[in-house]
Design a binder for these strands. Structure first.
Ligand code: MN
Ligand code: MN
Ligand code: MN
Ligand code: MN
Lengths: 221, 221
DNA sequence: ATCGTAATTTAGTCGCACCTAAAAATAATA
DNA sequence: TATTATTTTTAGGTGCGACTAAATTACGAT
């Protein structure tokens, strides 16, 4: 089925909101998401319902059907692959990629997607640390937590940042932290939330609470 | 000015048809191009006229104004850069790229375009041998002719193919001919149009007329 | 110069994706 | 529970980009 860019965006949003809240998605939530009016959303979800992409009941919100879910996963796959491409190959920073990926995800070409995947060496995660669904839409989840939550003694791998202001990214590169960097938590000071880490088994660095909560990491094993 | 994908496609088509015919473009020609009805074209060119992108006079055809021409050149730039990317990085063949590039050319992101350009090493020509406009829209033309037109004794560089069927591309790769390959015309047989060439100062190969007319080349100097 | 045909435009319609205003249903609160 | 507030839907409207049918203009041939 040929879907318009708008239809695709709705489906992806329904998927993401469901993922976050676990409940049926209200028209208001979608209206919020796209900064449009709820009446417009009602219109669209009714059409998506007729196409058997979503389950929709008046006043009861909307959820994805099988077909819709598969569309959503393919979109997320493309979106995240493009984000990897932009960061790894075209010198985009983590916060610049989203808007462009939002457009690129709608390009229709199975060959493009699979070749891009191969060209990037089948990445499993995007620059924000989020998993990239495979061809069949399977998602390899991974526990993602703030460095500020990591216990003393544990080793964490940097998989993303929460907000990526220029200043912050420059600070990270200055202390040698990038995606994939291993951080061992040597000490934590509860009184100001700062964390002492060893970067890649070498340098020892103290990170403020602000920095620590801005870093997404995953634990070894 | 934010243009829709449709508007952009019209502008590019007007540019290309003007380039080919040298005359004002008729609504019929555009209708033909997009396989739509002339009445729909009239509608669109009137709107493009109001936006000062084209000059349009009832019954007299349409031509690009300054602004429209610059839009067209940027689109062609993006289209051809993406074609280079698809062929050089993603293993697309020459005939597979057009449809995808037709979509990718509409992605809005100046940074994406300039970084892609740099990533590809500032290519001057696309996989079909057509010149890629620079940031300012300047086009570096180059005389493009059929190998079948090249005189005995001259050295020609392969810059593209007319039609790129799988069979033909396989034949080329078998005889070691690709983009950039130098061919010296050793002999020509007028009676069947075949051409004897030396490939890259090494192998000697006889090409049928069909092959020769399918190869676009440019002459040294 | 006139006529007939082809090209082009106009008028009116349709689906998409948005809007506003008003009605209806649901949820919150007294 | 009754009333009020919020959420959601319906009804009707707009611009875009296509369509058909009909009117108009241009043009080639006699
Ligand atoms: Mn999108
Ligand atoms: Mn992401
Ligand atoms: Mn092309
Ligand atoms: Mn296009």
């Amino acid at each position: 089925m040929e879907l318009s860019t708008s239809e695709e965006n709705y489906i992806k949003a329904i998927f993401k909101i469901t993922e976050r809240t676990g409940e049926k998605v209200s028209t208001n939530a979608l209206a919020e998401e796209f900064s449009i009016k709820a009446a417009s959303v009602t219109d669209m979800v009714q059409r998506l319902g007729e196409k058997s992409l979503v389950h929709y009941e008046k006043y009861k919100g909307v959820s994805l059907l099988e077909a819709g879910e598969s569309v959503a996963k393919q979109l997320i796959r493309k979106h995240r692959l493009w984000e990897v491409f932009l960061v790894e190959k075209l010198n985009f920073s983590w916060d610049e990629v989203h808007e462009v990926a939002e457009q690129l995800e709608h390009i229709r070409s199975p060959k493009l997607t699979s070749e891009l995947d191969a060209f990037l060496n089948y990445p499993k995660y995007d620059p924000h640390g989020d998993p990239i669904p495979d061809k069949e839409g399977r998602i390899q989840a991974r526990i993602k937590l703030n460095l500020s939550k990591v216990q003393k003694g544990r080793i964490a791998e940097v998989i993303g940042v929460e907000e990526s202001e220029d200043d912050f990214l420059r600070f990270l590169s200055r202390i040698g932290v990038q995606l994939g960097t291993k951080l061992e938590v040597l000490d934590r000071f509860e009184y100001d939330g700062s964390v002492v880490v060893q970067v890649d088994d070498e340098r020892e660095v103290t990170l403020s609470e602000k920095v620590a909560t801005n870093l997404w990491v995953t634990l070894e094993q």
